[in-house]
Amino acid sequence: MDFFRFFSRSEKNSKNVAKERLKLVLIHDRANVSPRFLEMIKGDIIRVISDYMVIDEEGLDIKLTRTRKDSDSSPISALVANIPILKMKEDSIK
């Protein structure tokens, strides 16, 4: 489920749109975080990562998902970030 594409206008049938919205609501409800909170996290991640590398901010994908612990298989929330790196900054390599 792509959180940021959720709000974009694309050609999807209403069944799939409703299914994605329900998944989003359930995940956010279980993790007790709002879309605004995720946007704040995204901004913080961009600021920190940008100190060390040039990234494609448009390609940045952050989502909240549910997974299971390896130790006891209990469900936990996970923040997943896909950050396209364009290049390392020269002053951060030293």
Rank of each mutant, 00 (worst) to 15 (best):
V17K: 11
K23L: 09
I46W: 07
I41W: 11
K69A: 14
I27H: 00
E39H: 08
T65R: 13
V33Y: 11
R68P: 09
Y52F: 14
I55S: 04
K69F: 08
I85P: 13
I83S: 06
L24W: 00
A31G: 04
S92Y: 10
I45G: 06
S50F: 00
A81T: 09
L60I: 07
R30N: 07
S71F: 00
H28W: 03
A81C: 15
H28M: 14
A78V: 13
I41E: 08
K89V: 01
K69E: 13
I85W: 07
M40P: 03
P75I: 01
R21F: 08
S50Q: 05
D29M: 03
V17N: 02
R47E: 15
I83F: 01
D56Y: 07
L79S: 10
E20W: 06
D70I: 15
I27G: 01
K19H: 11
F37E: 07
R68A: 10
S74D: 13
N32F: 00
A78L: 14
A81Q: 09
D51F: 05
I76M: 12
K23Y: 06
S74C: 08
K89H: 06
S77V: 06
D72E: 10
N32W: 00
M53E: 01
R30T: 05
P35G: 01
E90G: 04
D56L: 01
K42E: 06
K15I: 15
K19P: 04
M53Y: 00
H28V: 01
G43R: 12
D44S: 14
R36L: 13
S34A: 02
V33L: 07
A78N: 11
I83E: 03
E57D: 02
S71P: 06
Y52V: 03
R30S: 10
H28L: 14
G59S: 07
M53G: 05
S14E: 13
V80Y: 02
